[in-house]
């Protein structure tokens, strides 16, 4: 039941952004959200919307604010992130997210797993395609 509406939403989203292949890409990225968000925060602490902008700058256009926010909250609940509030010169206080020690450890492991999968995928795709009947 859930695949119908959410697939429709993705198509809708893709239509808005004018790309054709993003349906598959957003699904792919879902499994990598943890690594992506943690990696972005490893380099520098950030607050919600700014993190999204950093991701967009890195080329992850498919990610929505809700995905990033939901991932941030989930990682925070898991103890991988800590938060602190900083006043901003313009507008409201901002809640900054920072990696905790478990978060760093988790990111290391996730990165190793990703490198492993990535290398295997590379090998898989480098095998020349057999002629199909």
């Amino acid at each position: 039941m859930r695949t119908g509406p959410s697939a429709f939403a993705r198509v809708h989203y893709c239509a808005l952004h004018g790309t054709v292949d993003c349906v598959d890409r957003s699904q792919l990225l879902k499994g990598l959200l943890d690594i992506i968000v943690l990696r972005v925060l490893e380099r520098q602490d950030g607050y919600g919307y700014e993190i999204l902008n950093r991701l967009r700058a890195a080329g992850f256009d498919e990610l929505g604010d809700a995905s990033v926010y939901g991932t941030l909250r989930r990682l925070y609940r898991a103890g991988y992130l800590s938060t602190y509030v900083q006043p901003s010169d313009s507008g409201p206080h901002r809640k900054y997210y920072a990696l905790t020690e478990p978060g760093r450890k988790y990111l290391r492991q996730a990165r190793e797993a990703w490198e492993d999968v990535s290398a295997k995928m590379r090998v898989l795709f480098d095998v020349p395609t057999e002629g199909r009947p």
Partner: peptide, 26 residues
């Protein structure tokens, strides 16, 4: 706070349904 003066939340975030769905998935 980061929105352009004329823009609305909906433009940036999409519909609340889509937003909730994305939240739920993550």
């Amino acid at each position: 706070a980061d929105l352009e003066p004329g823009a609305v939340l909906r433009d940036l975030l999409g519909s609340p349904e889509a937003y909730a769905r994305e939240l739920r998935e993550t």
